[in-house]
């Protein structure tokens, strides 16, 4: 599969830029671009922000995920406390980040 030139990957590694994640996702949607987002390590705390559920629903099940190991390492329960807006299938590994690199023509880290 070659990278889709109309698809933007957002790799979220910082726990303090939810406004940029949301702002960029909204602007990309407005511009008719597709999105794929992965939250890893301490950025998974952003799943507790009320804006996360809206973001997850906007992206859809195949296009947003979080690192399940990070979620567990940070003390959350990856089995009994799946973040609002996600299903168990979206509790993923770093392989999802690999999919971002492979599938998205554009990429940004936040």
């Amino acid at each position: 599969m070659s990278a889709d030139p109309n698809k933007l990957a957002i790799f979220v590694t910082s726990p303090q830029h939810m406004r940029h994640v949301v702002g960029l996702a909204n602007a990309a949607e407005k511009a008719g671009k597709k999105l794929m987002i992965f939250f890893t390590y301490k950025s998974i705390h952003l799943t507790k922000d009320p804006r996360f559920k809206v973001l997850a629903e906007k992206c859809g099940e195949d296009h947003i995920a979080i690192c399940a190991d990070s979620y567990t390492c940070e003390g959350y329960d990856a089995a009994a406390d799946i973040p609002a807006g996600l299903s168990g299938k979206q509790m993923r590994t770093q392989a999802f980040h690999g999919a971002l690199l492979d599938e998205c023509g554009k990429y940004i880290v936040l």
Binding site: L8, H20, L24, N26, A27, K106, I108
Partner: peptide, 17 residues
């Protein structure tokens, strides 16, 4: 201005944030 940022990202070959 996130609209401008999206436009710049899609114009660039590579973005470093």
């Amino acid at each position: 201005d996130y609209d401008t940022l999206v436009a710049k990202i899609f114009t660039a070959d590579k973005t470093v944030c």
